[in-house]
Design a protein around this nucleic acid. Sequence first.
DNA 1: TGCTTTTGCGCAATCGATTGCATTGAACGT
DNA 2: ACGTTCAATGCAATCGATTGCGCAAAAGCA
Lengths: 340, 340
Amino acid sequence: MTKPVTLKDIARETGVHVSTVSRALDPNARTSLTTEVVERIRTAAERMGYRPNRLASGLRTRRTMTVGLMLPDIANTLFPPIVRGVESILEPKGYASIIVNTDGDREREGKLVDVLLQRGVDGIIHAAPYRSDPRMVAVSRQGMPMVTVNRQIENSQIPAVINDDAGGIAEMLHYLYDSGHRQIAHIAGPQTLSTGRGRMEAFKVATRELGLDLPEHAIAVSSHFDEDEGRRCTRELLATGWKFTAILCANDRLALGAIDELHRHGLSCPDHVSVTGYNDIPFLDLIPPGLTTIRIQQFDAGRMSAELLVKMMTEPDATIPRTTILPVKLIERGSVKRIT
Amino acid sequence: MTKPVTLKDIARETGVHVSTVSRALDPNARTSLTTEVVERIRTAAERMGYRPNRLASGLRTRRTMTVGLMLPDIANTLFPPIVRGVESILEPKGYASIIVNTDGDREREGKLVDVLLQRGVDGIIHAAPYRSDPRMVAVSRQGMPMVTVNRQIENSQIPAVINDDAGGIAEMLHYLYDSGHRQIAHIAGPQTLSTGRGRMEAFKVATRELGLDLPEHAIAVSSHFDEDEGRRCTRELLATGWKFTAILCANDRLALGAIDELHRHGLSCPDHVSVTGYNDIPFLDLIPPGLTTIRIQQFDAGRMSAELLVKMMTEPDATIPRTTILPVKLIERGSVKRIT
DNA sequence: TGCTTTTGCGCAATCGATTGCATTGAACGT
DNA sequence: ACGTTCAATGCAATCGATTGCGCAAAAGCA
């Protein structure tokens, strides 16, 4: 690699000291320097193709202008829009981000946090925390600016940007109720995740408020937010013998699995059973019968989490909202049938 | 942030010089040190929770153990699997990656390369280059290890890991031919990209070899690999009045757009017109009529590109294949109808 | 004009880890 | 027993940028 131009090179070229060059190139501290000198240095820097060495400046200032972005899995379509939202704020401000995939594995999460710390990130945006996540809480307590997005760590002071799960689930349940459904099953997400737990709690609250008296086995709990678990939980529900007319699923992939499993049992959606999802992942509108779901604002959630993080990194004493809840929207498609 | 433990801290604690600590902790250079000392230092380091500062070591050694990963858009489902493939190699070796999204914008690409250079990346994996991309070629010429994946920069020495476009297109065309189709249109990808250009050339070659005599306007060229352009090109094809029975599209999203546009004109796929895609993006099997397409190996492409890059970074004199072509596979679904 | 204040810039330490060279002490050979 | 060799560790420079302090010259003041 051709040796890059350094401050020293510019200093030699312009006949001044490197500290002068440093000051001349610093847009903030350009105090007490002749404009003539500043101009001379800046043109020289430009001409020589100077690019500041972020490593060196990071070492000295203890600010690397790097943030860590922890995801469960970038290949899960839920997360790329969050990433873009985050970048939309960070990149213009000069931050670069290191993305790591935890695969929902606590041990990996631990290793990856270490990786981020070794690289001296200025802050961390965590889209894959567990409801209880002592390690991340500890890192945060040590003073590392941190925000969670999409999920949250319960009983912690870590700011979270989440979607209105309670509102979304309630709205969906009312929608099913208004469509005539009374026997409504729920395929819940993993109870170790705030989204899985929160949506299940919301389901219980909302059914109670509606006066629905559902059997104990109306809820099947999945261990992963994926199609296979959607299928397994559907089998579990069918095996109870209970005659439900709708399944409210904690996310879209569980719902896709549920629809598939219903078909295998000769039950069609929505003719025999209505199914609803959550998140509104891409291409859902093209997949028959068109999953009725709750659209969440992934990009905005990413954007807002980055805004909060920047504030935490640059204004340590600023007041940061503990929880930011974004509104959601019911998307009506074909997977819910009105019954009488 | 609580001050991290440094070599100096360990040196003070164990009563030796920092250079001794450095050597004791270096798995390679642990030569000529008493095992007793090494052991004492290593346990102390462990106990104190030492984490090496990658910035400092990178500054000194000029190896940051960081690579840049340039994508068009992480939200495009084609790319996350490539990213995971890349990480599967880099992460275990201690590399972190900085991901940037070019959005197919040359100016942005330039800025982002600068960002990567400032951060002293040891190498770059580029999944979003143009067929002609002088800036990236220049960076490569300066000695920056670089590999392109999925696409390639033509007339350059930059190693590329790509899929067998010629083979895939030929296979698909033969498949259509064998299904009785003779009037076959092509919606080509952007001609500024090696994939768009290459697949179109392959289409021409393969039609010639089959003795198909297609009209000039059998090919509609898109400006982006997306649904809207698929629709526009389909309108263009329909407007010619030529009676084609199949459209071979340069990628899946163009194909989805094409099917949609055909429907709007009262033409169904595959009953009136057969349509084929390329890439085999997720959920395609769930979208009727099931797009017949070519499956490419994204994860493996990512993995191999990372393997090549690692080799370039660690063995500067190693021989690196200029082009690595991965096999593809035709996935038969319902969007092609056999005609007589 | 002589003294104080301000301005403009250089000096040198610093961030944490690495590494060529110097040094010390012990082992070795004769 | 004494010079030589080698093993084990210390010393100090270095990577590139930043920044508190200091110094000299210029400006301001009476």
